[in-house]
């Protein structure tokens, strides 16, 4: 039985017998190579559930912020999660944003998510009209082209170095777990960037963030970014400017990164959501690397661990403090 069918059967069963009001999952999107969130409340709607390499959005986001309308208190929701999404659930449980009794976690094994912008680069910007994925290659067709691309070349950056593809915490697991992925170069992109000179790093940072149009898609798709009022939206006092001034833009992104320090699960939703294709995850991964090296922590992996920034050990390394 394939994953899709198993997922639909499980969802139907939960809706019928599990006392679940809705299943939050993905269904096919309106465009080729896309998916869209689905809130299935009936068995018929559950038949639209899918899971494939286009299901990139982290659905935990529907439990937080003012989207609590959808998964509000007292409403029991099943939610389909990849490895990274499950870590978001764990984090949000720990931070009391979700009640354990309100959620049924349906884990799926993830083979990585396709980054649309990488595919677009491969097609030279020509529109993809047909898409298929055989697990090794994807094939994309459009007017005047029909090409096969190895999956590894179009996977999201977050997926290439993914360590936890399976949901670590789940009530139901669909399909075969892939097991922990041992990637030696988990932080390769970060290390490569670190090797550049300070001047070069600054130039790259400027170049990347000058693309930002301040639409806040990165923030809004992020399940860890759930402040009732974001610091950029505060205007009394107003902390940062809202024009395209580069220093304001960089400060927004740096502070957002620090706000999700030790809370980011590196799902890559922000990067895929960015309409300007800013490589946002590089900063997140730098922070994750520091958190892992210094505090030995990975967000949302241990359900009992406090988030890194709300915790401390007395004898911690403090090499950055003046001697």
């Amino acid at each position: 039985m394939n994953i899709q069918q198993e997922l639909r059967d499980a969802a139907r069963k939960l809706l019928a017998e599990g006392g679940v009001d809705q299943i939050i999952g993905w269904s096919s999107g309106s465009l080729p190579m896309s998916s869209t969130p689905l809130f299935a409340a009936t068995k018929e709607e559950a038949d639209d559930l899918i899971f494939d390499a286009t299901c990139g959005s982290n659905l935990t986001v529907y439990f937080t912020k003012d989207r609590r309308q959808i998964a509000r208190d007292g409403k029991k929701s099943g939610v389909v999660v990849k490895g990274c999404d499950a870590r978001s659930i764990v984090l949000n449980l720990k931070e009391n944003q979700i009640k354990r009794d309100d959620v049924v976690i349906i884990g799926v094994p993830c083979d990585g998510i396709i980054d649309r912008s990488k595919v677009e680069d491969k097609t030279g910007g020509r529109e993809v009209l047909e898409f298929s994925d055989n697990g090794k290659n994807i094939s994309v067709k459009g007017r005047g082209f029909d090409i096969d691309i190895p999956r590894t070349e179009v996977l999201s950056d977050s997926c290439i170095s993914c360590v936890h593809p399976d949901a670590g915490m789940s009530d139901i697991f669909i399909g075969e777990p892939r097991g922990e992925q041992k990637t030696k170069d988990q932080y390769l992109s970060v290390e490569q960037f670190e090797e550049l000179s300070a001047e070069e790093r600054w130039e790259r940072t400027k170049q990347e963030y000058s693309k930002c149009i301040r639409c806040y898609a990165c923030r809004n798709v992020c399940p860890s970014c759930y402040c009732n009022e974001c610091f950029v939206d505060q205007n009394d006092p107003q902390w940062i400017g809202k024009t395209l001034d580069l220093s304001d833009t960089i400060i927004f992104h740096v502070i957002r990164n620090l706000h999700v320090a030790g809370r980011c699960v590196e799902c890559g939703s922000c990067e895929r959501a960015c309409p300007m294709d800013i490589r946002l995850l590089l900063l997140n991964r730098k922070v994750a690397k520091e958190v892992a090296e210094r505090f030995g922590m990975e967000t949302g992996v241990d359900p009992d661990a406090k988030p890194a920034m709300s915790d401390f050990r007395e004898g911690e390394k403090q090499d950055f403090i003046m001697g």
Partner: peptide
Amino acid sequence: SAKCVNCGA
């Protein structure tokens, strides 16, 4: 509006 995440994209 259910799935909208309220970004400005």
